Computed example of a mutant assay.
Amino acid sequence: MTRTYRTLDVPVRGGDLRVGVWEDGTPGAPTVVAVHGVTASHLAWQLVAEALPGVRIVAPDLRGRGRSNELSGPAGMAAHADDLAAVFAHLDIPAGLVVGHSMGAFVSLAFAHRHPGLLARLLLVDGGLPLATPPGLSGDELVAAILGPTAERLSMRFPDVAAYLALWRAHPAFAADWTPELEEYLAYDLVPDGGGSLRPATSYRTTLEDTVDLNTGTAVTDALAALGHPTRFLTVPRGLQNEAPGLYSPEHAARLVATYPAVRHERWDDLNHYTVVMSEPGARGVAAVIREELSALG
């Protein structure tokens, strides 16, 4: 069957949430809801979707990102979780598997806590469990410590798409994993700035708000304390700049698993925080785990 891709808008508080859907018309195909990271968009899931024929992938642009960047009202884990609930209702999605990458994993945990009847299993990809950030940091310091240059680009302006792609071609995370799908994802990230240039769709303010909430708010810790869904947690050895040890060092991951023994942890090799979903090897691996989780659903 031919794989199709479309987008639709789902009404949520403050406006419309853009949602991407990949499907091929397979009768009875299961639906997986996929949630992207802090400065990403639904197109981060392209390669994973392509590796999953016979599975419908539903992936929103979280509020403040992509084509959901004009939504009014605050962000934060609870707001994103409630937006996901609206997507489930709008598309009549049965309870199943929710997959989150990076900040999307934290959103997925909050969703499981606030709307437990809407899902059955969780897959957290290099995110979701508390990060090892120093205590006492300001919001700006948290963003700098976790995201570094990823946040710096949000204030930059670009004359055209080619200039933005050139910035990313020099990025160490994608030195060996540049694809046409990545170019499409990056081009989609740009919106007019009102002055004749282009800017990333995600605002620094929204990134700051979400980063502070997932690190110092109670949404994530409350969700983990009440976790009642089978949860699988994948980590990789390198971070946003392809640096070791990444967001979760082996020592920190071991402490988390000891604290949350119901969470099943796996550490993969040879991938970084981006390429675990946005490279062909990473996408194939995530797709294989998704199929295992769907099989567990029966």
Rank of each mutant, 00 (worst) to 15 (best):
A51D: 10
G66N: 05
I57A: 05
A78C: 14
D83V: 01
H42K: 13
P74W: 05
H42T: 08
G54N: 07
H36K: 05
A81C: 14
G64W: 04
G73L: 02
D82E: 12
P74V: 06
G76Q: 03
S41I: 00
S41H: 10
G76R: 02
V38Q: 10
H36L: 05
R67G: 13
S68V: 07
L62Q: 13
H80N: 14
S72T: 07
L71D: 09
G66K: 01
R65K: 09
L84N: 12
A44S: 12
I57N: 04
A49W: 08
S72N: 10
S72Y: 03
V55F: 10
P74G: 14
G73Y: 01
A59D: 12
R65E: 08
V55I: 11
R56W: 00
M77S: 15
V38K: 04
D82K: 05
A81Q: 11
N69V: 06
A75C: 15
L47Y: 04
T39L: 11
M77K: 14
P74M: 09
V38M: 10
G37W: 01
V48C: 03
A59L: 07
A51W: 00
Q46T: 11
L52D: 04
A78N: 15
G66S: 05
D83Q: 11
S41N: 11
A40S: 07
T39G: 12
V38F: 02
S41R: 08
V48D: 01
R67M: 08
G66Q: 02
P53L: 05
V38A: 14
E70K: 10
L43C: 03
Q46Y: 05
H42Q: 14
W45K: 13
A81W: 01
D83G: 10
R56Q: 09
T39D: 15
R67P: 03
D61W: 03
G66D: 08
H42F: 08
G64R: 06
L71C: 10
L43R: 09
G37N: 06
G66A: 04
H80D: 15
G37Q: 08
